[in-house]
Amino acid sequence: MNQRPDGRNVDFQDRYQRGHATPRPDATHVTEPQRPSVPPQPRGSGPYDAGRYPRRGGKAKRILISVLVILLVVAGGTYVWADSQLHKDVDLSKVIERPAEGDGTNYLIVGSDSRKGMSAVQRKSLHTGGTAEAGQRTDSMMILHVGSNGPTLISLPRDSNVTIPKFRGSESGRTRAAMGANKLNAAYAYDGPQLLVRTIEYNTGLHIDHYAEIGFTGFANIVEAMGGVEMNLDKGFKDKWSGADFKAGKQTLNGAQALAYVRTRHAFAGSDLDRTKNQQKFLAALANQAASPGTLLNPFELYPVMGAGLDTLVVDKDMNPYLLAKMFFAMKDVNSGEGKSMNMPLSGSVGGNLAWDMPKVKQLVNELKNDQPVTVTSDR
């Protein structure tokens, strides 16, 4: 016991009651020690964040970005290369008195009998005859309309009776007088692609937006680069002039066979009309195979095919690889049934040439210009 200055005795109980010292802990109430507070850590600084333990998705993301960059560089380089390979020799701006542009895009696709670059051995094996310097003619002519109602492919028989109007010479630049009634392929023979476009536009009233032409050599080389094109022939036929010798049924045509198939006319009673139908079938099948994932996604398939085609392809000055690809995909759609293929409507013959059914032609052109569904049919 202790004694205070005033003489009072103070025991421990009194000390605790008056609060002069630390209170005695109560056995029935024990306070747990508080844990030190930890301020929240910003995202990315935790023990499992990048730096100590990288996230699993980070590496995959970097790989994906790298692959995309590489693909973009390759695609860009391919586009530039392909554009540089195109022979942009046709200047449609020199065509005079052109009809107004309509909706959609109209391609004039021409197959010429050019033997440029062919050796004597090739001309013999492909049954083309002639010489490498021989004048060119058009073996096939088609208008491909690409619009919002599916593509329409229209064959123009080379023996069509048309008027060759006045025109501007492609080399001289001088205006030439009209030539009157002629076969359609005579326009190309007289002054090449520009007069052919002028003649088609004059006789149809349809504006041609782009031009694409391929010769014998390029055609055969594309087919060879693709490893052949599979066709299912309804009937077999032979033609000593083109070298055709086919049996009915499914088969793969190589370059020489494909050229013989699209050139054959003497084996058919309908002559040029049957040939144009075969040309449509083959070109649609070729486009379908060329635009397939197996070709587009395989560089060992794609680049040889592109190289073979671009080497002899002649186009207009405004054509580019994108528009060319658009054309091929439209032809693929024709083959898959999403489009329509037909001959130019005919009404008979004039002097041995095929006469167009002009009321039907006018209706057809009006539907194409307004990008409407094509309702016109061809009976031949």
Rank of each mutant, 00 (worst) to 15 (best):
L233A: 10
Y211F: 15
P165N: 10
K183L: 05
S148T: 05
T163S: 04
S170V: 08
G147L: 06
P157K: 07
K238W: 13
D234W: 14
G218F: 05
A181E: 14
M179G: 10
T175L: 07
A189P: 03
D191K: 13
S140N: 11
P157E: 06
Y190E: 15
K240A: 15
G228K: 09
A212Y: 10
T138A: 14
E213N: 13
Y211H: 13
G215W: 06
D159T: 01
R158L: 03
Q194M: 15
D234T: 15
Y190Q: 14
L206A: 07
K235I: 09
H210C: 13
T175Y: 02
R176W: 01
I208M: 08
Y211E: 04
Y188C: 13
K240D: 15
K235T: 12
M142T: 02
P157Y: 10
G215A: 14
N232Q: 13
A187W: 14
K240L: 12
A178R: 03
G147D: 07
A220Y: 14
R158F: 06
F216D: 09
R174M: 01
E171Y: 11
K240V: 15
G150D: 07
K166F: 03
L196C: 10
A189V: 03
M231A: 08
A178F: 01
N221I: 12
T138L: 10
N149Y: 01
A178L: 01
Y211K: 12
Y188I: 11
S140Q: 10
V223D: 03
L195M: 03
R174K: 14
N185P: 09
S148I: 00
A178N: 01
R168A: 08
M231W: 07
L153H: 02
I154Q: 10
F167K: 08
A225C: 05
G228R: 03
E230N: 14
L156A: 00
D209G: 10
N232L: 14
F167S: 12
R176D: 03
I208Q: 06
V162C: 01
V223I: 09
N185T: 06
D139I: 04
V197W: 06
A186L: 08
G227K: 12
I164K: 01
I200P: 05
N203K: 01
G173L: 04
N232F: 08
N232W: 08
T163P: 00
S170H: 07
M226P: 09
A187F: 14
L206T: 04
A187D: 14
I222M: 15
A177Y: 08
N161E: 12
G180C: 06
T152V: 15
S172N: 04
D209L: 07
P193H: 12
S170Y: 09
S242Y: 02
V223E: 01
E171D: 07
G218L: 05
L206P: 08
H207E: 06
A186C: 10
E224L: 06
T217S: 13
K183E: 05
R198V: 02
A181V: 06
I214F: 05
G147M: 04
T217W: 00
R198E: 08
Q194P: 08
P151F: 05
K235F: 13
A177F: 02
V229F: 13
L144M: 05
I200W: 00
L196N: 08
L184F: 03
T175Q: 02
R198K: 11
L184H: 08
D191H: 11
S148H: 00
R198Y: 02
D191F: 04
A178Q: 09
A181W: 13
P151V: 05
P193E: 13
A220C: 14
R176L: 05
I143F: 03
D239H: 11
G227R: 12
